[in-house]
């Protein structure tokens, strides 16, 4: 019974965002509520099929929300950084690759690390091989490694994951 309740709560956490999405899509037209119920239900079923509760990472929404402002700010910095390089007459780039030993668990957390790095100044996630993540850097003079480490630590805190001992 307890397991059942937890499963229902899990499905509900998927269903509510889909329902909100539908309501915005239809400008909250009451005539669209019934198809919306069916559509959001079907979307929830599909999402549970593609990523079952057992494989999903449990995210603390409050700490995730606390990440958002800093992340938005860094993505603005990332845009400004790449914009001045694009407009600069000599396009100042010193591209380099970093092979980063990821400590986050595979799946969602690593994908979000890659996504966030792709929007931050000077870094771009380019997939992973086992525990090694390939990161492309625009300028080897930028302190990118520190930025990657602190981004990984922020995500680890948001999902309540212990990164463990020192990086090798």
């Amino acid at each position: 019974m307890g397991v059942n309740l937890r499963g229902t709560m899990f499905a509900l956490r998927r269903f509510v965002p889909f329902a909100i999405f539908w309501i915005i899509l239809t400008s909250n037209d009451p005539g669209a509520w019934l198809p919306g119920l069916i559509a959001a239900g079907a979307a929830t079923a599909l999402s549970l099929h593609l990523l079952p509760a057992s494989r999903a990472t449990h995210v603390n929404f409050r700490s995730l929300a606390s990440l958002a402002p800093g992340f938005l700010w860094r993505s603005v910095l990332g845009g400004i950084d790449v914009a001045w390089r694009a407009f600069h007459p000599r396009t100042p780039l010193r591209p380099t690759w970093i092979r980063y030993q990821v400590r986050l668990p595979a799946g969602g957390p690593r994908v979000s690390l890659g996504s966030e790095l792709s929007l931050m100044p000077g870094t771009l996630g380019a997939g992973e091989d086992g525990d090694v993540m390939y990161i492309h850097c625009l300028d080897s003079n930028q302190p990118v490694l520190e930025a990657i480490v602190s981004e990984e630590e922020r995500i680890a805190r948001a999902i309540g994951f212990d990164l463990g001992g020192a990086r090798d």
């Binding site: 603005v76 845009g79 790449v82 929007l119």
Partner: peptide, 28 residues
């Protein structure tokens, strides 16, 4: 920012550098 994105896409030397411009500038 859109102009920067297309300038980067046009002027940056390799695929991955261009991808930086596309991803960051456009969405901003």
């Amino acid at each position: 920012f859109f102009l920067a994105g297309s300038m980067g896409l046009l002027r940056f030397p390799d695929v991955h550098a261009r991808l930086h411009a596309l991803t960051k500038a456009d969405n901003l």
